[in-house]
Design a protein around this nucleic acid. Structure first.
Lengths: 207, 207, 207, 207
DNA sequence: AATGAATGAGCCTTCATTCAT
DNA sequence: CATGAATGAAGGCTCATTCAT
C-alpha cells in the first residue's frame, strides 16, 4: 500500500515536473509575458484544466519555476570556492558563481527579473515572495561574508556587496538584451575586471 | 497651396504630439502594461480608431515615446558639465546626467527596458531600432570622451564606459524594482561612490 | 451637429434595448442562471465583446432589466384605482395592480426573485441595489397608504401590508412553479379572496 | 449468500447516506450554488468519481436530499398536535409544524426552491418529481383535514389550505432573503397572526 | 468499489485592430 | 480626419463528468 502511494506520488511529481518543463519551454519561445496556460498545457500534452490539478494559478507556475531556479543558483554558489585560501579569492569565486550561473542560464535571469519586477499582487503569496527573496539573498551572502573577512565592517560590506550585485546585474542585462554587443564587450570579462579592481582597492585600503 | 500643406503638416505633428503626451500620462498612471489604446485615446480626447491615423500599431507608440525620451536624455546630458574644467569632473557631470535622468524618470526607464526586452518581432522596424540604439549611444559618448581625455586609450575608454553604464543600469534596476531598499542602500549614493572610485583609480594609474 | 448626436444617442439606446431584449429572451429559454454572455450576444446578433460596450458586466444586464421591470411595475400601480372612492376599493385596486403585473409577467417575477435572492456581491452596486429596493417599496406604498386610510395606525398598516405582500408572493411563486395547479386553484382568485377577507376584517374592526 | 448480499446492500446504503450528509454539510457551508461535486466528495472522504457510483449526476443528489428533507418535514408534521383537542388547535399545531420546520431549516427551503424552480430538464425523473410532490402534499394534508374538521367542505378546505400554504411560503421567502427585515416584521409572528385570523373567521362563519 | 487524472465545454472578460460612415 | 461600433482571438479559470486502472 505504501509502495503504491509512493509510486503515485512519484508519478504526480514527474507530471508536475513535466508541466514545469513545458512552461520553461514556452517561456523560451514566447517570452514570459506571452506564455499562456493554454500554450503551456498544449506543450505539455494536456488540456488547460489539467494544469490546475498541479498549480493553483498561473503565477504559481512562475513561483515554482523560480523557486527551483533559485535552488540551482544556491547550489552553484555553495559549490564554488572550495579549497580556496584567501578571502579575496573566495570573494571572486563566490561572485563568479552567481554571475556565471546567470550568464550561462539566461532563462533563469528572465525568471529572476520577473520576480523582481512583475509579481502580480495576488499571484505569489506574500509568504512565497519572501521565501524567494530570502533564497536570493542567501546566494549573495557568501560574497558579503568574504567582504567582511577582507576587513570591511558590516555596513561597508553590505554596501560593496550591493554595488557588486548591481554591477553584475547591469552587465547581465546588457548582455541578455544584446546591448552589450553594442559595446563590443564581453560581460564576463568586464565582471572579472570589476572584481579584480575591487579586491585591489580593498587590499590597498587595508594594507 | 504649399502654405496649406505646411499648415496641415504642422497640425498633424501637433496632434501626434498630443497623443504621445496622452500615452506618457497613461503610462505614468497605469504602468506600461496597464496602458491600453482605449485609455490613451480617451486621455488624448480621441476615439481609439483615430490613433491609427498617426501610429501603425501600439508598439509604434512605444517606439515614438522612447525616441522622444532619448531626446530628452540627450538634452540632459548635453546640458551637463558646462563650465567644468577637469576631465574627471566632466566625467562625473556627464555620468550623473544620464543616471540622474533615469533615476528621476522611472517611466523612461520602463520604456527603455520594455523595448529592449519585450517588444514583439513586428513592433519596431529594424531601422527605428537602430536609430534608437544610436541615440542611446550618443548620450553615453560624452562619458567616453571624458575617459579618453583622462588618458585612456580608445579601447580602454570603451571598456570603462561600458562598465560604468552597466553599473548604473544595475543600480537603477535594483532601485526601480524596490530591491535596493532590500539592501538598505541609496542608488544615487552608490553611483557616486562608483564614480569617485573610478576617477581615483584612473588618476592613480595615470599619475 | 446636435441632430447627429441625438440620432447616434438614439441608435445607441436602441442597440442597448436590443441587447436587453435578447437577454430577456435568453432568460426565458435557459433560465436566469443558464444565461451566458455568449448566448445573449448570439441572440442579439453580436459577438460577446460587443456586449461590454453597453454593459459593464453580466450583472449589470440583470440590473438594467430589473430596473426597467420595476418601472413598469410602478407604472401599473400608479395607473390603478383611478376614480375609486373608498379606501377599501383603493386597496384592492392597488394590490391587484402589483399582483396582476407579476401574474401576467412571470419573467419579471423571475427577475425580482433574482434580485431578492441572487445578487452577487460585486454585480449590483450597493447603490443600484438600494435604488431597486426603493422602487419595489414604492410600488407597495399605495397599499400601505390605503390601509392607513382605512383606519389602521402606521405600525398596523405596515404589518398588514407585509402580510399582504407575502401572501401575494407566495401565490405567485406557487403558480409560477406550477405548484398551484397541484392544488387545483387559481392564484388570482385566491388573492382576491384574501383581499376581500382582509377588507372585511378591517371594516368589522373599525365599524 | 443472501446474508452477504444484505450486508453489501446495507453498506451501500450507509455510504450513500454518508455522501448525502456530506452534501448537506457542503450546502450549509457554501450554499446550494457554491456546492461542487469535488467539495462534496472531499467532505465525504471520497474522490469525485466515487460519487457517481451512488448518484447518476449532480441533480440526483439534490433530488435525494430533497426527498430526505421531505421525510423530515413529514416527521415534524406528524409529531405535532399530539393530545390536542379542538380542530382549530390542531390546525394551528400542524401549520406551525411545517412553517416552523422551514423557518428553522433555511437550507431545506433552498433545496425546495431550487428543485421547484431551477432544475435542468434531465435532472429529476418525472417519476421522482411526482414522488416529491406527493410527499409535500402529505405534509400539508393534516392541515386540510383539520380545516374539514372545522366544518369546511372538501373544496373550501383545499382552497383555504392552498392560501395558508402560500401565505407561509411567501413569509418564508421574504424572511429567507432578508427582505422581511426590510419590513421590520417577524415572519413567525405574522404567520401566527394569519392563523389566528383564519381560525376566527372560520369559527365566526360556522358559529 | 473507488481512484484520480484528465477532458471538454463552458464561463466572464479584455483589447488591439478594422472599417463603413 | 475622425468616429465608434464591432470583431475575433485570446486570456485565466471552473467543473461535471468519464474511464482506465
Amino acid at each position: 500500500m505504501q509502495a503504491k502511494q509512493q509510486r503515485q506520488q512519484a508519478m504526480n511529481d514527474s507530471r508536475r515536473a513535466l508541466m514545469l518543463d513545458a512552461a520553461r519551454s514556452v517561456f523560451d519561445r514566447l517570452g514570459i509575458e506571452g506564455a499562456s496556460i493554454r500554450e503551456i498545457a498544449k506543450q505539455a500534452g494536456y488540456t488547460p484544466g489539467a494544469i490546475y490539478s498541479y498549480f493553483d494559478n498561473k503565477e504559481a507556475i512562475y513561483g515554482a519555476l523560480l523557486a527551483e531556479s533559485l535552488e540551482r543558483l544556491n547550489a552553484a554558489v555553495d559549490a564554488a570556492g572550495d579549497g580556496v585560501m584567501s578571502a579575496g579569492d573566495l570573494l571572486e569565486a563566490k561572485a563568479n558563481a552567481w554571475f556565471g550561473f546567470y550568464a550561462a542560464n539566461p532563462r533563469d535571469l528572465d525568471l529572476g527579473f520577473y520576480l523582481v519586477q512583475g509579481v502580480r499582487p495576488r499571484g505569489l503569496t506574500a509568504e512565497l515572495n519572501e521565501q524567494l527573496n530570502d533564497r536570493l539573498h542567501e546566494a549573495l551572502k557568501p560574497c558579503e561574508a568574504a567582504l567582511q573577512a577582507m576587513g570591511l565592517g558590516a555596513e561597508a560590506a553590505l554596501r560593496e556587496n550591493t554595488a557588486l550585485f548591481a554591477h553584475g546585474v547591469g552587465l547581465l542585462l546588457l548582455q541578455h538584451t544584446g546591448r552589450i554587443r553594442m559595446f563590443g564587450q564581453d560581460a564576463m570579462m568586464l565582471f572579472e575586471a570589476y572584481l579584480i579592481s575591487l579586491v585591489e582597492r580593498l587590499q590597498t585600503r587595508s594594507g
